[in-house]
Design a binder for these strands. Structure first.
Length: 308
DNA sequence: GGAATAACCTGGATGC
DNA sequence: TGCATCCAGGTTATTC
């Protein structure tokens, strides 16, 4: 499932291939891939064709390709926004390559160095989407995210917080938000308006590393515990990024269709019944809303005030 | 206003 | 073998 490291691997793969490229063709095979786009498939195809991509940027799990304006040297005013959902992939293919099994959209771009390339959006579970979206100024005037110096983000990304690896991430705001949340810390970590880019896998891993029970009330975490959690979040995300992300199956791959290797370093997620790497106690799985949390019942003691 | 829950969706795994 | 059911989970609308 693509979380911050997986999306960053995709962004970094796309950047050299699409920066400076002209969109010469767009083919929407499945309109469900445009659920975030306000217009029709035909309008999306027509609006994007003929535009020049000037970069590849990311905040949290959202990535976007800023588009050049018609004004010479003018700042981009809009972008193609992509969210991979649970199973979305952005793949680089030859323009005439056979369709992927779950291909939803194919863009053909003409790059001044690489020539024509196919940028394929493939998505098995159709939770992912593409959209054309206006860029709006960031509230803190800092760059919108990784891969862009411009202080702007797509409008539909503006509401989410920066991710913990962002240089402009506001640690004080993060701690303040935790202190005001009367909810389980696991649930709060998945709230993209508190800190973005974290999903079920890395939330479980960071909580294991910080020895915090997933049902601990966020507002009752001490400043020291909140700082430790933030440090572990960053550590887990950076390690996963270095390993190319986490792949359990063919659902997450980079732009070349290759898997990441972080799954071999997981300590809690998906390891139900296996011994904890610290103390040997079997990892436990508990239901959490419509998903699950994995933790060590010995290292991550459930506090008496634990939220449910 | 904040918190919790349901719904969206597909395919692999499991049970009968 | 074939069918039914469960499960995975990011985001958002709805409900409490």
């Amino acid at each position: 499932m693509p979380e911050l490291p997986e999306v960053e691997v995709v962004r970094a793969g796309l950047e050299p291939a699409v920066t400076g490229a002209l969109v010469v063709g767009v083919d929407v095979h499945d309109a469900r891939a445009l659920t975030r786009h306000p217009g029709s498939s035909a309008e999306f195809e027509a609006s994007l064709t003929g535009r020049r991509i000037v970069g590849a940027a990311r905040r949290g799990k959202f990535l976007w390709l800023p588009l050049a304006t018609s004004t010479p040297h003018g700042d981009p005013a809009d972008a193609v926004v992509a969210h991979l959902g649970m199973s979305g992939q952005l793949l680089l293919r030859a323009p005439a390559a056979a369709p992927e099994r779950h291909e939803r959209v194919r863009m053909i771009v003409d790059h001044p160095v690489h020539g024509e390339l196919g940028v394929v959006f493939s998505d098995q579970r159709t939770f992912g989407s593409l959209a054309l979206d206006p860029l709006v100024p960031t509230v803190d005037a800092a760059p919108g995210g990784w891969g862009t110096p411009a202080p702007s983000v797509p409008a539909q990304v503006a509401h989410i917080a920066r991710d913990p690896l962002d240089e402009a991430f506001d640690e004080r705001r993060f701690r303040t938000r935790l202190g005001r949340k009367d909810s389980a810390i696991k649930r709060v970590l998945l709230d993209q308006t508190v800190a973005s880019g974290i999903g079920n896998i890395y939330a479980d891993e960071a909580l294991w590393a910080a020895r915090i029970h997933p049902e601990t009330s966020a507002r009752l975490l001490s400043t020291r515990a909140a700082n430790r959690l933030l440090a572990e979040l960053r550590g887990v995300l950076l390690k996963a990024l270095a390993e190319g992300g986490t792949s359990f199956d063919a659902l997450y791959v980079n732009v070349n269709g290759e898997s990441g290797y972080f799954s071999r370093y997981l300590h809690s997620y998906g390891r139900t019944g296996e011994p904890c790497d610290r103390c040997g106690t079997p990892i436990k799985r508990i239901a959490f809303g419509n998903r699950s949390s994995h933790f060590c019942p010995r290292c991550q003691r459930k506090p008496s005030h634990a939220s449910t």
